[in-house]
Design a protein around this nucleic acid. Structure first.
Lengths: 217, 217
DNA sequence: CGGTTTTGTATCAAATTTGTATCAAAGTAA
DNA sequence: TTACTTTGATACAAATTTGATACAAAACCG
């Protein structure tokens, strides 16, 4: 089950949240100031962070900037019902916010919603500016959809799963075509060329003389 | 969709609520004092009532006693953030309360939460301008009923439950027909075509070459 | 039963993908 | 450098896949 980090200085609120979420089946840990929070994030991979804005040492917004590097979903906790704070939090990349005093059921619901949203996000593979959504089979480059044929798509996937490894033509062929390689065909080359062209990968897909190809970086 | 009755004497607040909820897809009607509210409740079955406490003629608490007989969920609206009022309201059988000034998104969320709790929300699935009522199996597009055959309906449901996922023909067939896919049939294609035509989904149902189909957005 | 609706096959046209051929360019080894 | 091999680029033809339509079989319904 998901591990949740609660960063909140008011201990009674912190405990309340912990109780509510533990009851729902989440594992919770608490930090009581921004510094401690940052420390804990560094040492353990959490599924979600509940982050108070008014915190000692490092405040929630500052900590948010730091958390962004970890790609962990965040729900802001704020005593201010002031919309400006909410907007600012959401702009910073928070996934939701909740204002004190809050409804326990609501908190539970929001935590679950955010986690669902995150797990639901289709398995994305990101490499540089290329993004492969393996469930929709949509490939984008800088957000723009690039139409790939079946073979191209599968070759791309093979490359990206084997970054920085020189792949033999034989290997590529047998993996993508699912049939033995009878040697001496230019088929693989052609598809690799098309892939390079469509995704502008002249540099990243290197040809390895007499061997095959290699996707670098 | 759910009918909501807003009983609130301040017309600008009333309108704000109405706008917010209409936008979310609810039908709203307004009463401006307790007497009018009671009258409307008597003449129509509402799914939910938003009830202000401070009302002319009959106040919210008194009206609450009356509403109890109708088993309609109630959310209190109160200017007083005073806990005593909240407790009193909830004890009377309100399902939730919200204090003025409130956040529109919060109001929408609470209304939906309460309706969900009461299972008042009919099993609707909405996607774009298409609305599927899974209990009546009625499909509408922009409010207009579209007659779908069984297979079409089930394929549509499959698509909509798997938005943005490329579905293999095999998968579609086995899910809808409940029997193994022996390959090499155009059956699925044909039904998908018919679905596209009836619901004008040429763009949204995309064919994934050599794979199957994908419903986008 | 008879008529209607739904469902599936067949057929053909259009679109897309895939693979071969060809030639130019680049790489390798002696 | 030279001779040779390998790869890049392009064009084009073959093969495959999908869209569209018509029509027959099957199911449905009074």
């Amino acid at each position: 089950m998901a591990d949740i980090l609660i960063i909140e200085d008011e201990e009674n609120i912190s405990n309340l949240i912990k109780m509510a979420l533990t009851q729902t089946g989440f594992k919770c840990e608490c930090a009581f100031d921004g510094e401690q929070g940052a420390d804990m994030i560094e040492h353990k991979k959490y599924s979600l962070i509940l982050l108070d804005i008014m915190l000692p040492k490092i405040n929630g917004f500052e900590l948010m900037e730091y958390i962004k590097n970890y790609e962990i979903p965040v729900i802001f906790i704020t005593a201010k019902s002031d919309t400006i704070y909410k907007v600012r939090g959401l702009k910073l990349g928070a996934d939701d916010y909740i204002t004190k005093p809050f409804d326990i059921a609501e908190l539970q619901a929001r935590v679950e919603a955010v986690l669902r949203r995150y797990n639901m996000t289709e398995p994305h593979i990101k490499v540089g500016d290329i993004d492969i959504n393996t469930s929709s089979r949509i490939v984008t480059k800088n957000g723009e959809i690039i139409e790939l044929t079946l073979k191209e798509y599968e070759i791309l996937l093979l490359f990206i799963k084997n970054k920085n490894i020189a792949l033999y033509r034989e290997m590529i062929y047998e993996h993508v075509w699912n049939e033995p390689y009878m040697g001496d065909t230019r088929t693989v080359d052609l598809h690799v060329q098309r892939l390079r062209k469509k995704l502008d990968l002249k540099d990243k897909i290197q040809s390895v003389y007499k061997v095959g190809y290699r996707y670098v970086e």
